[in-house]
């Protein structure tokens, strides 16, 4: 086998080059019947146009909020489960991972039922006498943020869980035995040692949240455009290849920037520790 690795590699390599790498590069830089110069002109224009900048900023802002929320909610779940001695811990972990297998469309529909004009939350507010009219919750940034947290929290839980599980629980006991409080143990032992996993969690969530399509489409509508919904509209509604490529470039660069930054940080941390 080791004598002919090329033979094993070539079919897959051909497929990924011609089915992915080359078409993506062509789409980003030289879409059909469009000058590459046009793509970069549109790219430049988008970075100065207030409407486009608002979409870029909304995408980044939502990405950051969702990332922070997923780490803040996901780490405690991972930590409590990793340190739990309950025989139900495995079941709770499975419950946190399960949504990853479930269709995004199905998961996002739930928010339509909760936040819609006839939805549960609005009616609850009316019944409680807090408002007379159910408030407009759908097609807001809040709706997108909630939908994306639901979507990506399981990913954050998995990454944090495998990181915390690698930190020897004996270290916790040692710290506690030496007089550290529970929160000191958490902040000074567990969190620093599981930082690589937390970083991976954050990167995965940010990349997912800034490129997700279903959630901003269903919960944000046309009033809360993100880069993904904007890209789709350029590609299939206005069929403006130059603008679609420019939007795709911005989205791709954003994701690459963040994952590059994250691997730089983890490499630096690896050198110093």
């Amino acid at each position: 086998m080791s004598r002919k690795p090329a033979l094993l590699l070539i079919p897959g390599l051909v497929f990924i080059l011609f089915g992915f790498a080359i078409p993506s590069a062509i789409m980003l830089l030289a879409p059909p019947s469009t000058d590459t110069a046009d793509v970069f002109l549109r790219f430049g224009a988008m970075l100065t146009d207030p409407y486009d900048l608002a979409i870029i900023w909304r995408t980044v802002r939502i990405g950051l909020i969702v990332t922070a929320a997923c780490v803040v909610l996901g780490f405690p779940i991972a930590y409590l489960l990793a340190r739990s001695t309950s025989r139900f811990a495995g079941m709770w972990l499975a419950l946190a991972i399960f949504p990853l297998l479930l269709s995004n469309v199905v998961r996002t529909f739930g928010w339509l039922v909760i936040l819609g004009s006839q939805g549960a939350f609005g009616q609850l507010l009316v019944v409680l006498g807090i408002t007379d009219q159910p408030p407009q919750l759908l097609y807001t940034e809040l709706a997108i943020v909630l939908g994306l947290i639901q979507l990506f929290l399981p990913l954050a839980v998995i990454s944090c869980y495998s990181a915390v599980a690698q930190v020897d629980a004996g270290l916790d006991h040692a710290a506690r035995g030496l007089g550290a409080t529970k929160s000191q143990t958490l902040w000074q032992i567990v969190i620093p040692l599981s930082r690589p996993g937390i970083l991976i969690a954050g990167t995965l969530v940010f990349a997912g949240a800034t490129t997700a399509y279903t959630t901003p489409y269903l919960l944000g509508g046309s009033s809360q455009r993100m880069l993904s919904t904007q890209l789709f509209s350029y590609a299939s509604v206005s069929v403006d290849w130059a603008a679609a490529s420019a939007t795709a470039l911005i989205m791709t660069m954003l994701v690459f920037l963040v994952s590059g930054l994250s691997s730089l940080i983890s490499r630096k941390a690896g050198v110093t520790s």
Binding site: I16, F20, S24, I26, P31, T211, V255, S259
Partner: peptide, 21 residues
């Protein structure tokens, strides 16, 4: 290279294949 489809946004791949294929 084989892991890179995880990083490149799916809409980008989709639009690329729509145009090329």
């Amino acid at each position: 290279l084989f892991l890179s489809p995880l990083v490149v946004p799916e809409l980008v791949v989709g639009l690329a294949l729509y145009q090329q294929i």
